[in-house]
Design a protein around this nucleic acid. Sequence first.
DNA 1: CTCATGACTAGCT
DNA 2: TAGCTAGCCATGA
Length: 110
Amino acid sequence: MPALSDAERILAAIRAIPRGQVAGYGQIAHRAGLPGRARLVARILSGNEDPELPWHRVLRSDGRIALPPGSKGWREQARRLRAEGLQVVEGRVRMPRAESALDAALWGPR
DNA sequence: CTCATGACTAGCT
DNA sequence: TAGCTAGCCATGA
């Protein structure tokens, strides 16, 4: 039996996102050793109940909040991100221009 | 088995 | 940047 399930590795990858930083669904999947499983990450998050999990740091590849615009979760995520010093406009996280050259730089150091 | 659904992506216009 | 399309994968009917 595997030491860690896919879900556990994904949760670990999410918990590893530093405060004030964000990561994409695909990135989380990749870091968890599950390339191409972005939708699995989304599935895990939708069913998550751990209040300690920094789920608000997970965004879509285009930097937008994945939840339905205007929904309760959407507002909560935007609120938490701003609370960590990030600029959120129209459900979209704006990153410093100097570091937006590539995704790797965009999402911060591994 | 097929079909629909969803906190997804990448490519093209 | 926005809109559309096709591909993707796990679940449940």
